[in-house]
Design a protein around this nucleic acid. Structure first.
Length: 492
RNA sequence: GCCCGCGUAGCUCAAUGGCAGAGCAGCGCACUCUUAAUGCGAGGGUUGGAGGUUCGAUUCCUCUCGCGGGCACCA
C-alpha cells in the first residue's frame, strides 16, 4: 500500500519541480460532463472547444496516444490524448497522472472508430493529485464493512448505484417537507441536548456540560417539546431530526436515526392516519413516480386507504390468542407459553401484548407485508396516548407498517394533565422496579399541559426506514451515510 | 449480551496439515482509435491479532478484535 503511495508522492515532487502546482486554486470549466453527453450531437466537431473537469477513472496509454475516462459529479466521458496535439512535453506529463487524480481538459468532441463519444484533448492540467489507489475498477468495492467505514470509497467505486440511495433519501425528506408545509405545518427546531429525556421508551446517551457542571441527555424523541409548542398556540408543527437511543444495532436500528414528528391541534388519530397514508403515498409518487413499490421482493401499493386492523384482532387472527380472554398478565403469559411463545414474567400485560405483535410480524405473513395500520394499543405501554373513547384499557394509538417494517408511531395525544401525571407516576413505579427504559416524569411538561393543551393528534415517522422501503434496502446501515460502527483495531 | 458464519496482496477472489496463487491496480518496456485495451518482464503477504497442538499451521484448537446473519432489547 505504502509502495504506491510513495510512488505518487514522488510524482507530486516531480510536478512541483517542473513548476506545476498539483493543487491549483482556480478551476476553469465551461460544461459539466452531463451537458456534453446530453448535447453531444449538436456540439460534436473539430471547431468546438470545451473545458471539462473530473476525476481520472481509467487510463490506457498506447505509446504516442492515450485514452482516459474522467468523471465529474454528473457523468463520465472518454478523453483522448495524442502526442501531436498536446505536444511532447505535455504528453510525457501523462506519465505523472494516476487513477484518481482530478484534471481539467480542453478540446473538441469527436466519435471514435468504435462509436465512443470522446473529447479530443488539446490542453490539460492537473487539479488535484490523489495519493492513494482507488478500489478495483471492475468489481468495485464489495466489502460491506469498508463500504460503510469509508463511504467515500463506496461512492467512488460503486458509482451511481451507491449514490442513488442517498439522492433518493434527500428527495424523500424534501417531499415530506413539501407535503407538511402544504398542509400548513411549520417546521421547528427543539433541543437535542435535554435536561430530561422523554417521549419514548428508550435509554438515552448522557453528555456532560462542563460550564454548567451537569449532565444533559441526547434526545430520544422530540415529542414533549413539540407538545409544549401546541400548548403555546402553534396548531401544526413538525420537526425532522436526529434522535439518539442507547440500544443495540441491527438491520433496522442505528443508535442515531432520523425521525419526523408532527403534531396537529384539534385532530385525533383517525385524522392522523389519514395524513400518514396521504403523506407516504405522496412521497412515493414524488420519488418513485408511483405509489407502487417493491420491497425485498414484495409488491406494495401505498395508495390510500390502507387497512386498519385493531392490534388485538391481528394477534387473534395470526396467533389464535384472544387477548381479551386473559385479563391478567399471569393468564396471558400462561396461554402464550402454551402456544409456544416466550413470555417473560417480569413484563406487564401490555408488554406481553406488544411481544405478540412482534411475533405476528416474524411469521412473514403476506397480508402483513402490505401497507397497514395496527390500531388501539394497551394503555400501560403508551403513557403519552389518550384513552380509547370506547374501549377501556386501550389507547387511541396506531403504528404504520409497510413491508413488515414498523415505520412509525402515532396517537390521539393525552391532554388531560391529571391523567398524564398518573401515567408518569406509573412509569416511575416501573422504573423503581428496575425497568430503566420506563419514562421519567417531566414536571415542566406537566406544568405546560396544566396550562391547557387542545385535543391533538401526533405522529412520528422513522425516516431511515421509509428510505429503506423506497430504495429497497434491507439494512438501515445502507441508507445512513456514516452508520455507527465499532472501533477498528487501530482505534483501540 | 448470547448463538452461527466470515476475515488471505491496495481491490475482487482461489488454495492446501508440507515453498501462499490469480485477475485488476501499481512498477519497467513496447504500441498514435482504446473499451475491464493488449503483449513481454520484474515485484508485491506477519493469511485480522495473541496463544496452543504439531517435525511443520494460513489450514486444527483456545482466546481476542472486526464484519455479517439470527436471538434478546428497542423504533
Amino acid at each position: 500500500m505504502s509502495d504506491e503511495r510513495e510512488i505518487r508522492i514522488q510524482r507530486l515532487h516531480e510536478l512541483r519541480e517542473q513548476g506545476v502546482n498539483p493543487y491549483p486554486n482556480a478551476v476553469e470549466r465551461t460544461h459539466t460532463i452531463l451537458e456534453i453527453v446530453q448535447h453531444f450531437d449538436e456540439l460534436v466537431g473539430p471547431q468546438g472547444s470545451f473545458t471539462l473537469v473530473g476525476r481520472v477513472r481509467l487510463l490506457r496509454e498506447m505509446g504516442k496516444a492515450a485514452f482516459a475516462k474522467i468523471e465529474d459529479g454528473t457523468a463520465s466521458i472518454q478523453i483522448y490524448f495524442r502526442i501531436n496535439d498536446v505536444g511532447e512535453q505535455a504528453y510525457q506529463g501523462i506519465k505523472l497522472l494516476d487513477l484518481g487524480d482530478f484534471i481539467q481538459v480542453s478540446g473538441f468532441l469527436f466519435v471514435t472508430r468504435t462509436g465512443e463519444r470522446t473529447l479530443h484533448v488539446k490542453h490539460y492540467r492537473i487539479l488535484a493529485k490523489g495519493l492513494r489507489p482507488l478500489p478495483e475498477k471492475y468489481h468495485g468495492l464489495e466489502d460491506k464493512e469498508l463500504r460503510q467505514r469509508k463511504r467515500y470509497l463506496d461512492l467512488i467505486a460503486n458509482g451511481d448505484e451507491a449514490k442513488q440511495v442517498f439522492i433518493t433519501r434527500s428527495r424523500i425528506i424534501t417531499a415530506m417537507r413539501h407535503y407538511l408545509d402544504a398542509q400548513g405545518f411549520i417546521e421547528v427546531e427543539t433541543p437535542i441536548l435535554q435536561p430530561l429525556y422523554g417521549g419514548a421508551t428508550a435509554r438515552p446517551f448522557v453528555a456532560h456540560h462542563n460550564a454548567l457542571d451537569r449532565n444533559l441527555y441526547l434526545r430520544i424523541a422530540v415529542e414533549l417539546y413539540l407538545k409544549r409548542l401546541i400548548v403555546g398556540g402553534f396548531e401544526r408543527v413538525y420537526e425532522i431530526g436526529r434522535n439518539f437511543r442507547n440500544e443495540g444495532i441491527d438491520r433496522s436500528h442505528n443508535p442515531e436515526f432520523t425521525m419526523m414528528e408532527c403534531y396537529q391541534a384539534y385532530a385525533d388519530y383517525n385524522e392522523i392516519m389519514h395524513l400518514t397514508e396521504e403523506m407516504i403515498a405522496f412521497i412515493a409518487q414524488e420519488v418513485k413516480g408511483s405509489t407502487r413499490i417493491t420491497y425485498q421482493g414484495t409488491e406494495i401499493d401505498l395508495a390510500p386507504p390502507w387497512s386498519r386492523i385493531p392490534l388485538l384482532d391481528a394477534i387473534a387472527e395470526f396467533t389464535g390468542i384472544e387477548v381479551n380472554n386473559y385479563p391478567s398478565k399471569e393468564s396471558l403469559a400462561a396461554v402464550m407459553c402454551a402456544n409456544g411463545y416466550e413470555a417473560d414474567p417480569k413484563f406487564g400485560r401490555g408488554r406481553l401484548i406488544d411481544d405478540l405483535k412482534g411475533e405476528i410480524f416474524r411469521k412473514g405473513i403476506p397480508a402483513l407485508r402490505q401497507a397497514l395500520f395496527l390500531i388501539d394499543y394497551p394503555l400501560d405501554v403508551s403513557p403519552l396516548a389518550k384513552q380509547h373513547r370506547e374501549i377501556p384499557g386501550l389507547v387511541e394509538r396506531f403504528q404504520p407498517f409497510i413491508g413488515g417494517l414498523e415505520c412509525g408511531n402515532a396517537f390521539t395525544e393525552l391532554n388531560d394533565p391529571v391523567d398524564q401525571r398518573a401515567r408518569f407516576e406509573d412509569q416511575m413505579r416501573q422504573r423503581a422496579q428496575g425497568d430503566d427504559e420506563a419514562q421519567v416524569l417531566d414536571e415542566d411538561f406537566l406544568e405546560a399541559m396544566e396550562i391547557g393543551m387542545p385535543p391533538t393528534g401526533g405522529l412520528g415517522i422513522g425516516v431511515d426506514r421509509l428510505v429503506m422501503l423506497m430504495t429497497d434496502q434491507e439494512s438501515i446501515r445502507d441508507v445512513i451515510l456514516f452508520p455507527t460502527l465499532r472501533k477498528t483495531a487501530e482505534e483501540q
